[in-house]
Nucleic acid binder design. Structure first.
Lengths: 141, 141
DNA sequence: CACGTATATTTCCGCGTGCGTATATACAGA
DNA sequence: TCTGTATATACGCACGCGGAAATATACGTG
């Protein structure tokens, strides 16, 4: 559980963080919003606290949790070398995010262009014919 | 293993991605650069392929791997609501990154000042054990 | 063409670890 | 004191990682 990346690998923790992004919350708030057992919330909060993602302040019996920026900044910094992959063609970014958004909303459109997870074949083997990326067939280097 | 976050939670996979950020590489290249067994490289590459992080093209017996932007874009997009946490105070960002940089450069000196910029928790906060930032004892390899 | 070599992927197995649920404990406020 | 709230502990379980061996594919050479 060392790295910040492992921390945000857990979906419930990401949900907690996203909830805290709007405003600080007590444990009970999170419990109700996310519909998860309080003991589970507290356990995740402990992990988030010990890894620096959140901090708590005491308000009577309650603990009010609030985000801390550093670990997410670290993730953001790690992404830096990769941004050039998509920052050059912004249109591709937006098209992808749009497609993901409406693919999540309505799961039926079969578009013309391939979707990102088309390579999820278990039996892909190493067929040297490119997996449905038609762009580069066989280029001899 | 569904989410992109779980994929990049693995340190070796992040290393592979970072290596691919510079340029495309064969499996053997990655094996040599990262000094990890080839079978392990292939296994991680499979995960990265099936989750859309990389794609492979065949060059004779070799597979040349290359990055695909979409999953990292997804991570980047998730970070969006949190960026307001640090984009307002740039100074804190830079101080933190500087400290992380030199903590990575010299990995043995325990720092002298007991008060980093973490003193924002000036409230009651009677939690007992985690006033201090958890020491990153990671980096096992 | 058969064979050996290089490269890459797959399969099998053991182990560590983190998650979830339930239970127990600490603490503050009425 | 009792009650709500928060944290800690114990246990079972699933899953992913690492390592070793086996399999697959392509190239070169005799």
């Amino acid at each position: 559980m060392e790295s910040s990346f492992a921390i945000i690998a857990e979906p419930n923790r990401r949900a907690i963080l996203s909830l805290l992004a709007s405003s600080e919350q007590t444990v009970g708030d999170i419990e109700r919003h996310l519909r998860m057992p309080q003991t589970s919330v507290s356990k995740h909060l402990r992990v988030l606290r010990e890894s620096g993602f959140v901090e708590a302040r005491a308000d009577a019996q309650r603990r009010v949790y609030r985000l801390r920026p550093e670990p997410l900044m670290e993730v953001d910094a790690w992404l830096t070398p990769f941004r050039r992959l998509w920052e050059s063609h912004v249109d591709a970014l937006e098209r992808h995010l749009d497609r993901m958004a409406q693919a999540r909303a309505q799961q039926q459109s079969s578009e013309t262009s391939p979707t990102p997870n088309t390579i999820r074949s278990n039996k892909i083997n190493h067929s040297h014919k490119n997996q449905n990326r038609p762009s580069k067939k066989d280029r001899k280097r």
